[in-house]
Amino acid sequence: MPSLVRANAALLIGVALMWPLGAALPAVLNAYYLQIIVYIGINIILAVSLNLINGVTGQFSLGHAGFMAIGAYASAAVTMFAWPSGLPGGLWAALLAGGAAAAVAGLIIGIPTLRLRGDYLAIATLGFGEIIRVVIVNTESVGGARGLFGIPSLASFASVYACALICVVLLWRLVYSPKGIPLAAIREDEMAAAAMGIDTTRLKILAFMTGSFWAGVAGGLFAHFIGYIHTNSFTFLKSIEIVTMVVLGGMGSFSGAILAAIALTVLPELLRFGAEYRMIIYSILLIVMMLTRPRGLLGNREITTWLSSKLATAR
């Protein structure tokens, strides 16, 4: 146990630093900027977790928003109906419950659909995302078509970025450790990977569950930040937005996914001066970015390797 603490000391200190940072930020930034920064954090979790499924393992999923929805509703149900009010730790219990619910859903959905390849998998996951949404709309106990009101606003800058940091560090370690190599092997050639003795089904499902877990956590943070959730926030357009972040960043690149999550969250806000032309400019920029950097902003490299190669050539 002490060795576990020592190995994670930097991470723990980083997480702990988020609270003083979160307390200091309102002094320099107004609520509008703060809100955008929190959205960036949530989108980073979503993009990085989909990157594990889509970019690293190569399983094209279009249902990420569905898992986010499960996490949002499950965690909101915990703080609203289950956790005694006044008792601290409600947010963390809720986030764990939301993540776990999403992971279980990922398991149930993953077992049958991960047999499918490529675009068929994409459409099956899209279908499950929509089914999840329709089922929630028809469930009156969580608000149904009216949406769920009155979720306690427990999430803040600190908790969102603490989660984002933990998510990025844990998934980075997973992918760039010996355990991550079989995942990349599945992406490159599933049949060759299976021939090398990799249990492809098990690993695909594990990657899918891990990604879904973090999507659920992101959903929980989202619910507890804005305090009101509606299934309209989790349509397949949201899934497409997350896929866009992964592809624009560069498939398999964590830093790329983070950069793209920041860019695609900030861009619509920066374009507010354009009023009704805002989304038109946004979509043109998206096309132009993809045409100029067809392999994504960073390709499949990380920003660290990209920088060091730049420095090497500069010398």
Binding site: M251, I280, L286, I287, M290, R295
Partner: peptide, 23 residues
């Protein structure tokens, strides 16, 4: 280029037609 990059421009064109259409 990788197949998925074309998918993203397809999404971009779709958004352009929708938002451009609204305009």
């Amino acid at each position: 280029q990788p197949r998925l990059s074309m998918l993203i421009t397809a999404i971009g064109v779709s958004m352009l037609l929708e938002f451009g259409g609204q305009r």
